[in-house]
């Protein structure tokens, strides 16, 4: 079962990019832990694995998968599972997480987190896949809420209930992406605070924050896009504060994956994350 006391520290963390290796070693600032995308470290050797090993001696590491396709209708790729097992056994990270999404179908990998309807059928499949991963890795994993751009007519579950039920049946924890909550709530026209109120926050082992882009759909309705290519938006920080007020401080990750800036820019985001965590700490005390 998921246990909040194990895993990552309730400090700011950052999505690791190789161009920041020296900066992180020399001037880590507020960095309390690092997150890496599992698939980038599934090569056989070389600099990526050497850097990761060096970083793991200084920081707790979160391995975050982006290619397992847990929401697939079909079976999980056994080759990919064994690569993941090899990485996790070698690195012994503080946490492993993946997405409530799919990315592989009929052997094509789409390199994006694709959405699934929330039905009894998809629920059973996701639970089966999460259990399979946890049995293989011999540890509970965290499952992340998606950023939604559309609704499936066929969905019969609310996302918060769906995630809670997956966690209840599989014993997994949850990764709460607050930027994704803000994006989905804006795109599908509901209150992000009400999502947080309905969310099983006691199961949250990690929080994500990232930047998004703004667009509109063909009806002129706002369409936010999860780009991870800029600073976290102010209303997302406000939602973060609200969330921390409900559940207390948790490991808080800054994600910046495209147009990756200089370390100083990321470091400033981490300072802001540290301030949010401090505030959450004081509220609890």
């Amino acid at each position: 079962m998921f246990d909040l006391e194990r895993g990552l520290p309730a400090k700011p963390g950052v999505g690791y990019k190789p161009q920041h290796f020296t900066d992180i070693i020399d001037a880590p600032g507020q960095v309390g832990w690092l997150e890496v995308h599992a698939e980038n470290y599934m090569g056989l050797g070389g600099r990526p694995l050497a850097q990761l090993h060096a970083l793991s001696e200084r920081f707790p590491i979160s391995v975050h998968g982006v290619g397992l396709s847990i929401g697939s209708e079909g079976r999980l790729d056994p080759e990919h599972l064994s690569r993941l097992k090899k990485l996790v056994d070698w690195l012994e990270p503080a946490s492993f997480s993946e997405h409530l999404a799919w990315s592989t179908h009929d052997s094509a990998f789409f390199n994006d987190l694709l959405p699934l309807p929330y039905t009894d059928g998809t629920l059973a499949k996701v639970v089966e896949h999460v259990q399979q991963v946890q049995d293989l890795l011999k540890r509970p994993m965290l499952l992340e809420n998606p950023s939604s751009y559309l609704k499936f007519e066929e969905s019969t579950w609310q996302e918060t209930d769906f995630l809670a039920e997956v966690a209840k049946r599989s014993g997994c924890g949850l990764l709460l992406d607050v930027n994704n909550v803000f994006i989905s709530a804006t795109n599908l026209d509901y209150s992000p605070q009400s999502y947080i109120d309905a969310y099983p926050t006691d199961l949250v082992g990690e929080v994500h924050l990232g930047g998004h882009d703004e667009d509109k759909d063909e009806f002129g309705a706002p369409l936010l896009i999860d780009s991870h290519g800029r600073e976290v938006a102010d209303p997302v920080w406000t939602l973060m504060d609200y969330t921390f007020e409900q559940m207390g401080p948790r490991p808080l990750l800054i994600e910046w994956d495209t147009d990756v800036p200089e370390w100083s820019v990321l470091s400033a985001e981490l300072d802001r994350a540290a301030t949010a965590l401090d505030k959450a700490q004081k509220v609890r005390v």
Binding site: L114, P115, Y149, L150, E153, E154, L188, F219, L223
Partner: peptide, 22 residues
């Protein structure tokens, strides 16, 4: 079909976000 915006209107533009990302 069956992919909509919040109001239940068919929205190819929203599907196109995934297509564009991929």
């Amino acid at each position: 079909p069956g992919l909509t915006n919040a109001a239940g209107e068919h929205s190819p533009r929203r599907y196109a976000v995934y297509r564009n990302n991929v």
